[in-house]
Nucleic acid binder design. Sequence first.
DNA 1: AATTCGGGGCC
DNA 2: GGCCCAGAATT
Length: 427
Amino acid sequence: MTDEETRNEAANESAAQERERRVRERIGTVEAEESKAYFSRELLLWYDRSKRDLPWRRHRDPYFIWVSEIMLQQTRVDTVIPYFNRFIERFPTIRDLAEAPQEDVVKMWEGLGYYSRARNLQAAAQQIVELHDGKMPSEREHVFALKGVGPYTAGAILSIAFNRPEPAVDGNVMRVLSRYFLIEDDIAKPKTRVAMEKMIPELIPEGRASDFNQALMELGALICTPKSPHCLICPVMEHCRGRIEGMERDLPIKTKAKKPRPEQRLGVLLEGSGEHEGRVLVRRRPKTGLLAGMWELPHIAAGSGAEAGDLGLDVAQLEELLEDRGLAWSPMSPYLTAEHTFSHIHWTMRVLIAREESETLAHLAAESGVPYAVAVPEAAEAEDELIDEETGEEWRWISREDMETIAFPNLFLNILNRYFAGESERE
DNA sequence: AATTCGGGGCC
DNA sequence: GGCCCAGAATT
């Protein structure tokens, strides 16, 4: 074999390898394309026969879609359904929502959590009335400009209500995509969501954006569930790389959240007497921060640092809070202890109970040396309502009937409902 | 990019 | 008891 022949041979060889590489690449591409087309096709077929009958799916009213999507943020479908029905009954149109008192809107949200969602929802309704004649806009920038509407919700409204081929990537979608395409990026990172949003438009079949995005989430909710996905009945299991590689239980990859920091709180349920008979003292939280603007029983941060565990010091501090309001009361006794976990804080709430004493009785008791009248306010100007315009903090004596109009977070809602129901559970 | 916003259901 | 959920706003 001459040198030239050898070179030709080598050239042919490398050309053949090159052809084969291209063929493989093409097959890979074809497989990838078929895998995508298969995914979209089978997912839609499955959705058409399996979709749930949900209240907001009975009409394609952008207002209903919008309200449902806000409620569904970090919240399960089963939890949302009764809230959605009550909300739409109370506020049937965007204009009704825009014109309602804010307390009514928050009251309808009571127990759902993330209460800024309710305030933002109403603020956005007012935006829509002012800027869009009370009708939900269908342009991306206008939808995105609404308060409380981020990348997911904007995409959900545009695709579900207006059938626009926009991505609506939530936790469900990231879980499904990470398994089907075996994507090992950390879904806790924003850039992973952005990358997945880029994948969506080419997966959406022509004219089926609304159904496709809902189908993706429906699959995540019903089949491709977090812990043990139901691969055997999954409509796209044949080409799911996560399942094929045996990785379905390891995906998606998500860095762990920190656990909530513990906080001890000491609260008081003060029963009114005299003109406050049958009422209970409550306080409205500042309009920013945790549980902003919600009502609660008065409470303080208890035992931190060196004084941890010294209930006496905590009680003294709690009493000072009431004295500042010009109040007097009979001795406090343990009432109950409740736990409550937020996403970033864990409360252990000890609640004491006491009965209001009129100023006169308190004075008399003090003068006569009766031991249980523990506080005599110097400047007793106990008004029924005290409002701090600066912070939004407010105090009020409320009756059982007031429970129907002012909004409490679940922790206090449960305590007060039990109290007004007449149960007397003591520690 | 990290933290702050609730609450409940499930394993 | 940890994890997750049809996330957005703020820092």
